[in-house]
Nucleic acid binder design. Structure first.
Length: 419
RNA sequence: GUCAAUUGGAAAUCGAUC
């Protein structure tokens, strides 16, 4: 059974869930008992693919066979639900554990804290962290990394750096999983310079930063329009022996576009090609977006064609960027056409896509049509803070503040928080 | 003796004092 479990685990890690399940059947045929290990591996695989229903049915199956669940099974499912931002489900499982006398461990708490952090519910995350300590479950470096990341995401770098000190006092070694969020947090709060200093300090201490940490810094610098600094950091990255990969080029291109520096754009593209890199989806999309925003739809479509010729498949974001460009330029009919084309391919329009149309309708003063779209979006759970903002702004502009406040109430009722 | 938790780039609204 160990052999089979190892095989099943490696299949699931490669996303070959079907093959893994075939093996499970084969085990049964050969009268080899499956174990909790086997099931846990499979459940983990389905969770990572977001197929929680499949994971749940295996959970039931293993329960019926008396093979579990174990702490690991619960933790796997909990983290699966957390990744889908289904915290209700995750916590329900957590409570179910208590009923079945399975004690949550460090991994379990870390997964839940991570879920809360992802949802930016930092007060709750801290509360759970304290509960964890009260239950004498010892946090480890991952727990700290998750919390640090959470605080950084909401811009609370002070708290994040406090936790960095705390974790070091406890003897945990920070790594790239710790540093990356801190760099990101500093950049997020408009302090790319501090992020740069932080990175320099870490280099002086000979801490090993990886591509991911550097790219985060590059991105922060580019976002603030500091392309020159980003380029020099990029050179430094290369000198440090790190890979200047496709993503790092993508960030620099984003920076060049932000500065509307099309000369730099073509230089970067040339250099990329020379190194054997081809622009990917993301790079093409950022170029297309930039041209749309410059009002140059022709050039935008030229890159779209180039992208398709290159074998890159446009995704939701690519479509949305063009739809936005078309809407803003007043070609709503063309945008709708593109949306249909999008549905015909395998891309499904999302909140942002519909948000573009919604924005166009409210800007044109077609509030009733906008409300119609909004209702459809509500049915598809596609309303969010931004889409409500668009509608509320539209009503306010027309002086219909009554309708606007009704929407405010509605959004709160729907559990969507105003910002 | 195999299973569970954390990392990078693109898109919609708004960003006051000019």
């Amino acid at each position: 059974d160990v052999t089979y479990s190892i095989l099943i685990d490696s299949f699931t890690k490669n996303g070959k869930l079907d093959d893994a399940r075939l093996l499970l059947h084969k085990m049964a045929e050969e009268h080899i008992r499956a174990t909790a290990y086997t099931y846990n591996s499979l459940i983990s695989g389905y969770c990572k693919l977001g197929k929680l229903d499949e994971a749940e049915s295996l959970f039931d199956e293993m329960t019926n066979k008396g093979l579990g669940p174990t702490v690991i099974t619960y933790t796997t499912l909990i983290s699966g639900y957390c990744r889908q931002e289904n915290l209700d489900k995750a916590f329900r499982l957590y409570h179910e554990m208590a009923e079945t006398n399975i004690s949550p461990n460090t991994h379990t708490f870390t997964a839940l804290i991570g879920g809360l952090c992802r949802a930016k519910l930092m007060d709750e995350a801290v509360k759970l962290f304290n509960e964890m300590l009260e239950q004498n479950v010892i946090p480890n470096e991952v727990t700290y990394n998750v919390l640090i990341d959470g605080h950084c995401r909401v811009g609370n770098t002070v708290k994040a750096f406090e936790l960095l000190d705390e974790m070091m006092e406890k003897g945990f070694l920070p790594d790239t999983y710790t540093y990356r969020p801190l760099i990101s947090g500093l950049c997020l709060t408009g302090r790319a310079s501090e992020a740069k200093e932080f990175v320099d300090d870490l280099q002086r201490e000979n801490q090993n930063l990886n591509e991911i940490c550097f790219t985060e810094l590059l991105h922060g610098l580019c976002k603030e329009g500091r392309l020159r600094d980003a380029l020099s950091a990029w050179k430094e990255m290369a000198e440090r022996g790190l890979n200047t990969d496709l993503i790092s080029y993508g960030v620099l291109i984003y920076g060049a576009l932000k500065q509307r520096d099309m000369v730099k754009l073509s230089l970067l593209l040339k250099e990329m090609y020379k190194r054997g890199f081809k622009p990917d989806n993301v790079i093409y999309t950022s170029i297309i977006d930039a041209y749309c925003k410059l009002g140059n739809l022709e050039e935008a479509f030229r890159f779209w064609d180039k992208m398709v010729d290159d074998g890159c498949i446009p995704n939701v974001v690519t479509y949305t960027v063009l739809i936005n460009g078309l809407c803003k330029a007043g070609f709503v009919d063309k945008a709708e056409l593109l949306c249909k084309q999008m549905l015909a391919s395998k891309s499904i329009p999302n909140q942002v896509t519909y948000g573009c149309f919604l924005d166009n309708l409210t800007m044109e003063g077609h509030m009733e049509k906008a409300l119609e779209l909004h209702k459809a979006m509500l049915n598809g759970f596609l309303a969010n803070t931004v889409t409500y903002n668009i509608l509320i702004r539209g009503f306010c502009k027309l002086g219909r503040t009554g309708d606007a406040s009704e929407l405010l109430i509605e959004m709160i009722d729907n559990g969507i928080s105003p910002d």
